[in-house]
C-alpha cells in the first residue's frame, strides 16, 4: 500500500461537489504537485487530506503514519504577520502532535525543534521575533514547524506566495533538498513551471475531470496546455 491513498473520493465545499470520483496514490518519497485553476478544488482536497472535511464518498487513507503526523505548511494569514512570537515558540509548536496528554515539551521535542531549525538554516534567529523576519525567513520558520510535525509527509499550500523570485528559488531548492532526504511532498501550486521542474507526479484538478500521472505524461497531455502561458485557460 502506498503512503497516501485516495480512492474514488468525492469532496464538497459549501454543499457543492468540487471533487468527484478522484483516485490517486502517492508512494513514500515521491513528490506530488497539485495544480489547477482557482476553484478547481485544490484547497478542498488539502482539507480532505488533513482530515478537516470527510469525503462524502470514497476513502482517504495513510499507510504507516497517522493523519495528525502530516507536516502542514498553511498559507500565511494577515494575523500572523504582526503576531508577537519568537521563532523557537513557533517551531516547537510543530511538536504538539507528539505530546499526548503532557502539558509541557520534553528535551526530546526541544532537540527535534533545534535540529529542524538547523536543517533550514534558521538556528541563528531562534530568539528573534517572527514579525521582524523577511517573508522568506518566515516561510522557513513555518517549514521547520511542519518538519517537527512530519513523520514522512509534508503538505505545502502555495509555499511561495508573496515571495520575490530569488527567495522563491531558494525555497524550492530547500524543498527539493528535503525531498532528496526522503520526505514525501505534496505541494499545491499555481506555478506550473516549478511543478514541471521539481515534482515526480502531477495532479491537475479541473472542473470536469482531472489528470494524475508522471511529469512526462503530463507534458504530453492536453491538461498541461491549459495552464501554460498562452494556453486556452488562465
Amino acid at each position: 500500500m502506498a503512503l497516501v491513498n485516495c480512492e474514488n473520493i468525492t469532496l464538497s465545499y459549501e454543499g457543492r461537489n468540487v471533487i468527484s470520483d478522484l483516485t490517486f496514490h502517492l508512494g513514500k518519497g515521491e513528490y506530488l504537485c497539485i495544480v489547477g485553476e482557482n476553484g478547481s478544488g485544490k484547497s478542498t482536497l488539502l482539507k480532505g487530506i488533513l482530515g478537516f472535511v470527510k469525503p462524502s464518498e470514497g476513502t482517504i487513507s495513510f499507510d504507516g503514519i497517522a493523519q495528525n503526523e502530516i507536516g502542514y505548511l498553511p498559507q500565511q494569514t494577515d494575523r500572523q504577520k504582526d503576531f508577537p512570537a519568537s521563532v523557537s515558540e513557533i517551531v516547537i509548536s510543530g511538536c504538539l502532535n507528539r505530546m499526548g496528554f503532557r502539558p509541557f515539551y520534553s528535551s526530546k521535542e526541544k532537540n527535534l525543534a533545534a535540529r529542524n531549525m538547523e536543517r533550514l538554516g534558521i538556528s541563528s534567529m531562534v530568539q528573534k521575533p517572527y514579525n521582524e523576519l523577511s517573508g522568506g525567513q518566515q516561510q522557513r520558520v513555518l517549514l521547520a514547524r511542519a518538519l517537527c510535525a512530519a513523520e514522512s509527509l509534508l503538505v505545502l499550500d502555495e509555499p511561495v506566495t508573496g515571495l520575490d523570485p530569488v527567495v522563491t528559488g531558494e525555497l524550492y531548492e530547500l524543498i527539493r533538498k528535503l525531498h532528496q532526504e526522503g520526505m514525501t511532498i505534496i505541494m499545491v501550486s499555481h506555478d506550473v513551471s516549478a511543478a514541471l521542474k521539481y515534482a515526480d507526479l502531477i495532479l491537475h484538478l479541473h472542473h470536469n475531470g482531472y489528470f494524475f500521472g508522471t511529469r512526462r505524461e503530463y507534458e504530453q497531455s492536453p491538461f498541461c496546455m491549459m495552464l501554460k502561458p498562452g494556453g486556452d485557460e488562465e
Partner: peptide, 16 residues
C-alpha cells in the same frame, strides 16, 4: 502550548 498554537495558527493546530 496548545493555546499558543491555536492562537497563532488554528489551521495548523487542527492539522496536528
Amino acid at each position: 502550548h496548545r493555546i499558543f498554537a491555536v492562537t497563532f495558527d488554528e489551521t495548523f493546530a487542527r492539522a496536528t
